[in-house]
Design a protein around this nucleic acid. Structure first.
Lengths: 260, 260
DNA sequence: GTTTGTGAACAGTTTCACAGCT
DNA sequence: AGCTGTGAAACTGTTCACAAAC
């Protein structure tokens, strides 16, 4: 903050760090749980523990929003819930469309956390004519032909893509042309969008690969440098768990290039 | 791992930055696509474009793996595919269990990218006895009672949690006790695990909230308050602050409502 | 006494720009 | 000529530690 000591810092939401924004939903969830238990106040230490971060980070994060705590006491739960909700734009209702109603799309449509906080599923859209009209999560699936009119009629600005990878860019282009400016992409593809459109991606296989990287490293680290050199990290050698004769994990094959 | 034929600083594989690790799967995907089209070499500029990053970042990332390019030419596609696969630990097969076979769990089980890149679904596990034996994605669903034996018998070290939030920590504890050391969590909860266990989370509602934050900011930026009227998404529904003692928590955020 | 809010130190990441190899 | 690999600079994010406020 500025060095000057003002009574009420005027400019809210001026440049909140991206890393902080990404944690606000976490704090909000923890605070909501406290609110439901009618806990009136909470310290940075307690709240940080509930959100899975450390307290210094949490206090720093909150300092970007303003001075909402009381020294020697902590933070007022209800007040913070409101302030964070407002900062995140959750005091208004965001209509959302989900495109691609396969297993994943259906799972998303049924996901409760969706509707419970600021978001409302305005429509489910699929390219398969056989799906049209079928109810999923209480809503009739609409055909892709209607995509543009649905978005315009409902003033939708957030779209979720849950189609196969091959269809994602095309769907994305249509969404953007129809006025969508924020996209959550579940298809394993890089989407290209014009400036001003935000894309966030959720990618299962990327997450698994990151886990595999660390997992591999754990296996190679086993007790000293002795075995590490010659024995390449091939088998899922458990570090702690009783060896149990090893699983039948070692499929042995080490084909160089990845299959298709 | 021996790298240099020439005298190298010997700092191979020691401490690849986390940010780089997170991008390797992206590069791998782009490279695999090139490989399928039999493209022999690629420049940092081209590959960066395909992966959606800039070329300086890509070159820096690759420099942590070693000098796998040729100046004036670019990178050999097949060779890079292999090197990155190996770095990520994908030259071995990782058995994975999915716990919680609702809509989401089923979607994950059916997800093709799963099997195609080093991961193999070893078992699907659900707590509902009615699910037991039912085939999902070609595999019979197993009951939670078998969780420990499945993990031990198959040498599984990676687990995916797709249960309702309320069950996640309990499932997590059992997975860890049975020897799992990497967890991909889709339940909207903070999991606590002992040291040495990696957790990555995928959280739909967090992603949406981050999008909403930026979306809200876009709306406010529009040249004056006048223009914002007609074109803006769903009219703000609620906007008043809650009183301290008031109840403004009709939420059900945490209450387990994920798959069905 | 307790706990917030925050400058300052530190750590990690991205971008720049160019030397060095082909 | 073209392109990689990498120090150095710039930027972003995290942690420390303590004065100020209750």
């Amino acid at each position: 903050m500025a060095t000057g000591r003002t009574h009420r810092p005027a400019t809210r939401s001026r440049g909140i760090p991206e890393a902080t924004v990404a944690r606000l939903p976490l704090y909000l969830r923890a605070l909501t749980a406290l609110s439901e238990r009618s806990v009136p106040t909470v310290s940075s230490e307690e709240l940080a523990a509930a959100a899975g971060v450390n307290s210094a980070k949490l206090r720093k994060d909150f300092s970007y929003l303003g001075s909402y705590g009381t020294r020697g006491v902590g933070y007022d739960v209800e007040y913070l819930v409101y302030q964070i909700s407002r900062e995140l734009g959750l005091t208004q209702d965001w209509p959302v469309v989900i495109v691609g109603i396969g297993n994943l799309g259906a799972a998303l449509a049924n996901y409760g956390g969706f509707a419970s906080r600021g978001f409302r599923v305005a429509a489910l859209i699929d390219a398969d004519p056989a799906m049209a009209g079928k109810p999923v999560a209480g809503l009739p699936v609409r055909h892709t032909d209607e995509l543009e009119s649905i978005i315009r009629d409902n003033g939708v600005s957030i779209g979720v893509i849950a189609t196969p990878a091959g269809a994602a860019q095309q769907v994305c282009d249509r969404l953007v042309a129809a006025g969508i400016t924020s996209i959550l992409n579940f298809a394993p593809t890089v989407l290209s969008v014009p400036d001003g459109v935000d894309v966030r991606k959720v990618d299962l296989s990327i997450e698994l690969q990151i886990l595999a990287f660390h997992e591999q490293r754990k296996a190679g680290e086993e007790s000293g440098p002795a075995a590490a050199a010659a024995a390449r990290p091939g088998a899922p050698a458990r570090a702690s768990a009783p060896a149990a004769g090893g699983g039948k994990g070692p499929e042995g094959d080490v084909p160089a290039v990845m299959p298709a």
